[in-house]
Each structure stands twice: as structure tokens, then as C-alpha cells.
């Protein structure tokens, strides 16, 4: 059974525009998949549907064999909290809050106590190499550091899957490379399933497989022949 099963997904807005039409694919557990497309292609909408952040108009989306309408709203919140991690283009860190607390935020909603929370958060922060910054306010960090905080937050609950929506979009190439390096590391060393949204071919090639989206439709679904590794350099 595939972790993600999308069948004939349609997302239409009340004004009639179709962000997604008839999109179907599977993603297995442990895959690193890039969803690529130009802006307005519907790739972000697709990610929102996959992350249960938004509902589809028609079609079926099964996560772990269960479709969205089989979950209670609170179960979906729990799913997002414990099985999914999100990394956004604009970081979305809480302002005026330090690194430790930002990373620990999902654990707060999981009802975990303060001591245990800090232990788990510190572990995640160490993984992204920001141990020296735990008590820094997030607003003083660089863009790359912010995104690493966001990654630490996404994986603090050891989720099954990490959704990264243009994680390098707001970063310079060096910082972007570091972020991609971490995503690849999470995939290869920790076995996380990763879905990376990007509009750049070169970024997408860090994944194992690329789903190309254009005008709301799945254009192609190909395995990456010459995979890039961020450790070796972002640009070739």
C-alpha cells in the first residue's frame, strides 16, 4: 500500500478556476519526490491537499490507506502534528520567540511536557546544526538559519513525511544548498519520506523522482537519472 494515493484529484475555486484537474499518482513510503512546475501551475495547491491543509473538490486522496473524509477534524490535526512536517518558503516562524520554542511548538500541541519537549527539540536543533543558537530570537537569524529552524521544527515529532514548499525560494544559493543537503540527509540517513515543491529543475533534481505539474495537470512523472547531491555543490 502506498503512503500517498491521489486519484483524479480536482481542485476548483468558487469562481470556476481549476487549480488542479484530474491528478493521480502514488508515493511510496521512503521516497524523495519533487513536485515541479512554474508558478500558478497548481503545485502548491497539490501540496496543501496532500498535507490535509486544504480539501479537494473531487477525487480521492488516501493517506496511509485512509481518505480525508474518514478522518475527524481533530484526527487530521493530530496527523499534521505527529505524522507530517511542513517547511514553508517564508519560514513561518513565530516572531519574538527563540529557536528552542519555535522548534518545540508542535510538541506543545502534542501535549508533551516541558522537559521532554526541550530534549526532543534540542535533538532536532542539533541535527540541523544550530545548537549554538537555541536561545536566539528567530528574527536575528539569517534566512538559511531560519529555514533550518523550520526544518528542525518539521522533524521534531519524527514525522513519516516532510512537505517542503519552495524551501530554497527565499534563500541565496549557498543557504539553499545547505537546506537541500539537510533534506537529502533526512531522507537517506533517517528514512523520511520527503515531498519537495519547487519551480527549478536544478532543485528538483535533488529528489529521486520528479512530478511535473502544468496548468493543474500532471505533465510527467519521471525518475531522476542524474541525481544532484547538495553536498557536492548546488549549481553545476
Amino acid at each position: 500500500m502506498a503512503l500517498i494515493e491521489a486519484r483524479n484529484i480536482v481542485k476548483a475555486y468558487p469562481d470556476g478556476t481549476r487549480a488542479l484537474s484530474d491528478v493521480s499518482f502514488d508515493i511510496q513510503e521512503g521516497e524523495f519526490v519533487a513536485i515541479m512546475g512554474p508558478s500558478g501551475s497548481g503545485k502548491s495547491t497539490l501540496l496543501h491537499v496532500l498535507g490535509f491543509l486544504d480539501g479537494q473538490t473531487s477525487g480521492t486522496y488516501r493517506y496511509n490507506g485512509k481518505s480525508g473524509d474518514q478522518y475527524e477534524p481533530d484526527e487530521i490535526a493530530k496527523l499534521r502534528n505527529q505524522k507530517m512536517g511542513f517547511v514553508f518558503q517564508s519560514f513561518n516562524l513565530l516572531p519574538r520567540t527563540d529557536v528552542l520554542e519555535n522548534v518545540a511548538l508542535p510538541l506543545v500541541y502534542a501535549g508533551i511536557g516541558k522537559k521532554e519537549r526541550e530534549k526532543m527539540a534540542l535533538k532536532a536543533i542539533r541535527l540541523v546544526g544550530l545548537s549554538s543558537r537555541i536561545h536566539h530570537d528567530c528574527s536575528v537569524l539569517s534566512g538559511g538559519e531560519k529555514q533550518r529552524v523550520a526544518i528542525a521544527r518539521a522533524l521534531v515529532n519524527t514525522p513519516d513525511i516532510i512537505f517542503a514548499d519552495e524551501p530554497t525560494g527565499n534563500l541565496d544559493s549557498a543557504s539553499g544548498r545547505v537546506v537541500l543537503e539537510f533534506l537529502q540527509k533526512l531522507h537517506s540517513e533517517h528514512g523520511h519520506t520527503i515531498i519537495l515543491i519547487t519551480h527549478e529543475q536544478s532543485t528538483a533534481e535533488h529528489a529521486e523522482r520528479i512530478l511535473s505539474v502544468r496548468d493543474g495537470q500532471l505533465e510527467s512523472d519521471v525518475k531522476v537519472e542524474h541525481r544532484r547531491f547538495a553536498k557536492e555543490g548546488y549549481e553545476k
Partner: peptide, 16 residues
């Protein structure tokens, strides 16, 4: 609004 969305994405329920 943005903060609310973020909290929900990170697992906050409506009750939270």
C-alpha cells in the same frame, strides 16, 4: 491570521 494558519499546520486543533 498567518500565525493561526501556522499553528494549525503544526497540529493545533480548532479547540486549541
Amino acid at each position: 491570521t498567518r500565525e493561526i494558519g501556522l499553528r494549525k499546520a503544526l497540529g493545533a486543533t480548532n479547540t486549541d
